[in-house]
């Protein structure tokens, strides 16, 4: 597949995530949209690594390339898992304090 199809797919997923963050008011759904954007970027990273590995493979058929990018994506997943645990703890605490997950109630900084 041409690389630009992968770019368009990742852009579509990322934009849907952005639109979700802007339109939804439920804190959990907003968090899920952020996860979706993270995954779109991961997919694009793997596609680009594959693209570059291919040019290296054409020059030297026995070379193993593209490992670094996949490890990078692996570390992104590690950080995302840590981020989700802390974020969900914050949402649970927010629900305990204001009995809602509506982000519109969190406007104390505005006043």
């Amino acid at each position: 597949m041409p690389i630009n199809y992968y770019i368009y797919l990742a852009v579509a997923l990322f934009s849907i995530g952005v639109a979700g963050v802007l339109t939804r008011r439920n804190a959990i759904i907003i968090f899920m949209c952020v996860e979706l954007m993270l995954n779109a970027v991961n997919l694009l990273l793997v596609a680009f690594s594959k693209m570059h590995a291919q040019t290296a493979l054409a020059a030297n058929p026995s070379a193993i390339t593209g490992v670094e990018a996949q490890l990078f994506v692996f570390f992104i997943m590690v950080v995302a898992a840590a981020e989700v645990s802390v974020g969900l703890a914050i949402i649970v605490m927010m629900y305990r304090n204001i009995h809602s997950v509506d982000v519109n109630f969190l406007n104390r900084l505005k006043h």
């Binding site: 690389i3 594959k50 291919q54 193993i64 593209g66």
Partner: peptide, 12 residues
């Protein structure tokens, strides 16, 4: 970018 193809192969 458009010219570059992504295909199967490699054991990375």
């Amino acid at each position: 970018l458009i010219k570059t193809q992504v295909s199967m192969g490699g054991e990375a």
